[in-house]
Design a protein around this nucleic acid. Structure first.
Length: 196
DNA sequence: CTACCGATTGACT
DNA sequence: GTCAATCGGTAGA
């Protein structure tokens, strides 16, 4: 496997809209129980440091959202109902912004993902933030994990870049700031959490 | 301690 | 489309 294209701290140390947009098409890796799980990112959402009432950091730092205030390139994993959600922290340290990974396309480890998800239906394995964390065995033990090390959990450039038709919509499920166009999708993907 | 509430999902009409 | 399971985080008494 090519670990020379692991996404660097500099990649994440930019504003969350740019990172969310550029993460489309990148690869998510998780080494778990001697299995390598790989997916291609097709849907993200940006959560801004300023003026974003939907962000967990909007009302200041708490034990849960501490990762958002930390260095870019680290994971922010939190529990949501029975599921977990995976974010990557963006911008400089102390600026609480992040990008939520909402959907990927399974590339490798599909058997394990199916078993963990309790379904064999390909488009239902990782087509949502909770679904992808369940399929990839991502939980809060990975909160604040440094994603730029190229081990355990990391992100990387694909070996060959492909053309991506991007779409931008309001974010899913938020109960405030519902108008902001901060959801980024690979429009042609069959694995989106919701139709465009 | 209690009460309220989701950046969700799956089941159901 | 609607609805509730389910549980950690948070605020408040």
């Amino acid at each position: 496997m090519d670990r020379t294209r692991v996404l660097s701290r500099q990649f994440f140390d930019r504003d969350p809209m740019t990172v969310a947009r550029e993460l489309l098409g990148k690869l998510l890796f998780h080494e778990h129980c001697d299995q390598l799980l790989v997916g291609r990112i097709v849907e993200t959402e940006a959560y801004l440091a300023a003026e974003d009432s939907a962000s967990h950091a909007y009302r200041g730092q708490t034990p849960r959202n501490t990762a958002m205030f930390g260095p870019p390139g680290h994971a922010y994993v939190y529990a949501m109902h029975r599921y977990h959600c995976l974010n990557v922290v963006t911008e400089g340290e102390g600026i609480p912004s992040a990008v939520l990974l909402r959907a990927v396309e399974p590339l490798q480890g599909i058997e394990v993902m199916s078993a963990r998800r309790g379904t064999a239906r390909y488009v239902n394995l990782t087509s949502g933030p909770g679904k992808l964390c369940q399929a990839f065995a991502i939980d809060r033990s990975l909160n604040q994990w440094e994603l730029t090390q190229g081990r355990r959990l990391w992100l990387a450039e694909p070996l060959s870049a492909t053309e991506i038709d991007r779409a931008v919509t309001p974010r899913i499920g938020v109960t405030s700031a519902q108008d902001l166009p901060l959801r980024f999708c690979h429009a042609a993907s069959a694995c989106l959490s919701r139709r465009l």
